[in-house]
Design a protein around this nucleic acid. Structure first.
Lengths: 213, 213
DNA sequence: ATAATATCGTTATTTATTTGACAAACCTCG
DNA sequence: CGAGGTTTGTCAAATAAATAACGATATTAT
């Protein structure tokens, strides 16, 4: 059924948005939707929606459209929302704490099992329901709990070093918020760099363009 | 000099990264760099770098390469880092506070001049050097200080309503962190939606793919 | 049951983006 | 100051992505 070969990054980036919109529709009690109607709500073309979805299989039905609830489940399954990848977060500064509290890891296939910070003053404090441990404990913790995903909220100077160490401890995916472009040379390691500063700068550029028109 | 017509979004998204890398090079004391060498450091093609930069003008010199310092300044100027757009932040929860403290607005053409929250308990508290005001004060504040950029760190339910109101008060650019796809129908308004949850989900997808190979 | 309508899945076309190629321009060194 | 070597800016080709077109199939109404 799933003709999941190698899907382009462009398609993958749109999947979470489909998933969100379908969730909203489900909440609103909408049972079925056509690619045309969904395209109007999401402000993209019906053709694109049909083509995106067909990368993974024929979830719709001619003359009817898509069943909201089951399409959402299919996409969720493709994305892996039903996984429970043990996840650790390194760096419990302002941003680290906010991410820990603000992101619902559970609904995105991840389970936040540990938070670490180099500052001993933070040790023992809890964020949400997770205690902050000292970074010295990372190795022992990984050997016991085998986390797979690491969220990096640390200064850029240490990022590469810490990431390399974590790879050695079994981490396979990095969600990197540090002000540094993380690249891992080992194969089979995934990195998602989030550069909030870059995001703001592109907005500044566009704000700037508005002025000069 | 600047043949700044209409630049594609793909190019714009890469500019902040060039800016960052050039900043690092400058810090390291590198005076000049060729597109080939920069391409190796940034893991993209030299051809792309040359073509990207040429959207804005010929900043390099044959046989020499690019002068790191002045190229950085040029890109910075294009992005608008030397602007001082008055910026307000709505929603001083965990994420709002973290953004206020963690992002260096000044180096990105923005000046954080006000923070607002609907919770009266937060009123008077300061984040960094900016006091939190009650959301009731937004209108008066905008009339006095004329902010241009708004950072939204609020629940999705209120986002569209608040954004529409802010447009009426003169806001022209939104940096939206709420779990909602903001779209503004008025022309001349820019929106940068940041969906951290979507970012994590794409990572989960890739983590998932690692498993099934 | 049949016709009319809606809508998908898929192929073809168009558009956008990336990569490659190369002449012109400049630097560097003797 | 001139030759040899670099490296750009730009044009052309290749690749990727988005859009449009359309036959096939299901739904719905009569």
């Amino acid at each position: 059924m799933a003709k999941n070969g190698n899907i382009s990054a462009s398609v993958i980036k749109r999947l979470p948005r489909y998933y969100r919109f379908l969730g909203e529709l489900e909440k609103q009690g909408v049972e079925r939707i056509s690619s045309r109607e969904l395209s109007e709500r999401m402000k993209l073309t019906a053709s694109q929606i049909r083509q995106d979805l067909n990368c993974f299989g024929g979830f719709g039905q001619q003359g009817y459209g898509y069943h909201v609830c089951s399409l959402r489940e299919e996409i969720g399954h493709i994305l892996g929302v039903d996984k429970e990848y043990p996840t650790i977060l390194i760096g419990a500064g302002n941003l680290g704490k906010a991410i820990a509290l603000h992101i619902n890891f559970e609904t995105r296939g991840c389970r936040l099992v540990g938070i670490f910070d180099a500052n001993p003053r933070l040790t023992g404090e809890t964020v949400g329901s997770v205690a902050i441990r000292h970074t010295d404990e990372i190795e022992a913790f990984c050997n016991e709990h085998h986390p797979v995903v690491a969220v990096l909220c640390i200064p850029k100077a240490n990022t590469q070093e810490i990431a390399d160490k974590l790879v050695g401890l079994g981490i396979r995916s990095f969600w990197n918020f540090s002000h540094y472009d993380l690249t891992i040379d080992y194969k089979g390691i995934e990195v998602e760099n989030v550069h909030l500063g870059d995001s703001l700068l592109t907005l500044t550029y566009r704000t700037n363009q508005l002025d000069s028109e």
